[in-house]
Amino acid sequence: MLLYVFYILSAITLGTAFLTVISKNAIHSAIYLVVCFFSLAGHYLLFNAQFLAVVHIIVYAGAIMVLLLFTLMLMNLNNEDETSKPLYTKFAAVISAGLLCLVLIAALRKALPENIEYVNSGTDFQSIKVLGKVLLNEYAVPFEFASVLLLVSMIGAVLISKKEEKI
């Protein structure tokens, strides 16, 4: 039963991910992306990770709303004026994304999750009480790094959006 749910969800995820890339219309892309993220949340629910699933929906669905707004307000939606990137930049983008993926897989493949004691003692480490403790005890350093990353991106966004003073 769960296996079939997994197959259906995976089909939706992959299909909408492809459609996001393929579709010509920017708004359609964004909507396909929302559906894709929802099916990913479904995958998390299959792992019984309720917190992760709900936070995934809040963060990404909200983010895509912002994306939609930006698409509407800032992007040129006429196909004729759209300047297509040269082929070599596309290749470079694909290769660098592939390299990043390789590094991540290499780093994560041998990493052991720090939840062995919770598995042994039988606590449900998906419940938010335990999750909070794990995040702030075992994973305190990565957690703080993530918050520094967010801070940096926030400052960067403010810097970019600031009007340049004319000299």
């Binding site: 309720q50 917190f51 709900v54 929906i57 809040i58 669905a61 709303m65 419940s127 938010i128």
Partner: peptide, 24 residues
């Protein structure tokens, strides 16, 4: 559920899609 407050906020954040998609 364990995360019902977050669930409420999640539904809230997708609620505006109805307006946005329909109006667009």
């Amino acid at each position: 559920i364990d995360v019902s407050v977050l669930y409420v906020f999640g539904v809230l954040s997708i609620g505006v899609y109805g307006i946005m998609i329909g109006a667009w």
